[in-house]
Design a binder for these strands. Structure first.
Lengths: 251, 251
DNA sequence: TAGTGGTCTAGACCACGGA
DNA sequence: CCGTGGTCTAGACCACTAG
């Protein structure tokens, strides 16, 4: 791997050229996916990785730059590069966009209402790239800010990945749900797509959110993805936006 | 500027160290702000800029990389680097997040309802970093998808920057409003912050959106910024999300 | 074919954090 | 003090576009 003679040069045709640094990026992603380094771990230094893959440090650097831009990995000058975790507020609040009209952003408290096994409807199966009838875990919870229930989440997870999920497990583990997913199920949420709408709240959710019937709520449909762009969670949220708003940056 | 002896070395204290490539980035930003290159223009090549600022091509490259990441500039291999414009769908749909439940994403048609001069309330003045009572332009418009009114925008602009804004100008210029802003007022929108809530529609907006009274709508408060992180627009949008949703990516 | 951005390398030095 | 990531340079070559 000397003199700009890239690995890509070996590829047939010309369809799928990808630069060396992206190939390295993908190898790192595979290693992460395989659990070689876990959330919070330091990954090997740039020099080590360069040796391991027989490329220059600059190429490894560019590969890591991309992973850092996706928040899959976090660089800390003088210390090293670490696998991102949802324990850090930095990451956590990228997925929890509700922000108070006044006062500080604080972590909510979570109350698990149930954790059931169900079968995938056609719609859910489609979103999670499963077949209709596939086993699912179905969790409902309420998040409260300052003792006020503000958000109801209905969460659907592929049964195959979350085998021993239980209400006990959910109650034993404080902190963000995604931290439990990382730590206990080795499923790291890397990005998500959301669809937002304003809707009248239905009776059931209204009760949970202590709202009058027919009040407007923000409905948030989220599909979350792990390393290989694999969908591993479908989540329907109902947000009371009377004193909180959903924050978004257009960049 | 040879041998890693950075300009920053000259700075007093140590408070505000900024690497050379960021200083170059800021200089480019100043040039953009001054109108040296206009939206759609090609900026000088990396080699030229390197000569102009007496740094290596690699340093210019990194400066431009940052601007490209912010979508302020667009790189096109083999052609050059261009100042981004809101004419391109790529940029346009980053600011227009409404997406149909089914069917293709298409550009809406716009109907201007009025364009007035008003004075800033304390709240608006605060958002736009003006003083209370400062002159504003106040525009209301309706956006329709497939002849269905779907979105009402109330837009507040600093009068000083949009002196000859008029309903005639607004009606003469088709395409995105931000393109008019760029082209006629030399104000380029670079990023924005939004606050979203679900709300009952008020009577006035309901009529415009052809909705029953008290229907839920998505209220979107947007503050938009130009080059130097200067707020130059406040916009309150009311979205009918019955057949469209607001799309967001969590990355 | 010339000119642009894109990739890759090699090496020197800087800034930061912890032992 | 050392090891980490961060910056900067210089130079060679690749990929793409347009004339």
């Amino acid at each position: 791997m000397t003199k700009g003679k890239s690995k890509a040069g070996v590829q047939l045709g010309a369809a799928a050229y990808s630069p060396l640094y992206r190939q390295i990026r993908d190898l790192l992603l595979q290693a992460l996916d395989a659990g070689e380094w876990r959330p919070g771990d330091m990954i090997p230094s740039e020099v080590e990785l360069a040796a391991r893959y027989s490329v220059s440090q600059g190429t490894v650097r560019k590969a890591i730059d991309e992973l850092a831009a996706e928040h899959i990995v976090i660089r800390r000058q003088g210390r090293g590069t670490f696998v991102a975790t949802h324990q850090e507020d930095h990451i956590r609040f990228r997925f929890l966009r509700l922000t108070p009209d006044d006062g500080e952003r604080v972590a909510p408290t979570s109350q698990i209402l149930f954790c059931r096994r169900v079968r995938a409807t056609a719609e859910i199966a489609n979103a999670l790239q499963l077949t209709t009838g596939a086993p699912l875990v179905f969790i409902r919870r309420v998040l409260s800010f300052e003792q006020k229930p503000t958000l109801v989440d209905d969460i659907y997870l592929p049964g195959a990945l979350f085998k021993d999920m239980s209400i006990k497990l959910l109650k034993d583990k404080p902190g963000p749900l995604y931290w439990l997913f990382e730590d206990h199920f080795e499923v790291s949420m890397v990005r998500a797509e959301e669809k937002l709408r304003a809707q009248r709240v239905d009776a059931e959710i209204a009760t949970l959110l202590e709202l009058e019937p027919d009040q407007p709520v923000l409905k948030v449909e989220r599909t979350s993805y792990t390393y290989g762009d694999r969908a591993v969670e479908l989540r329907i949220g109902y947000y009371n936006t009377e004193r909180y708003y959903y924050h978004n940056s257009l960049i």
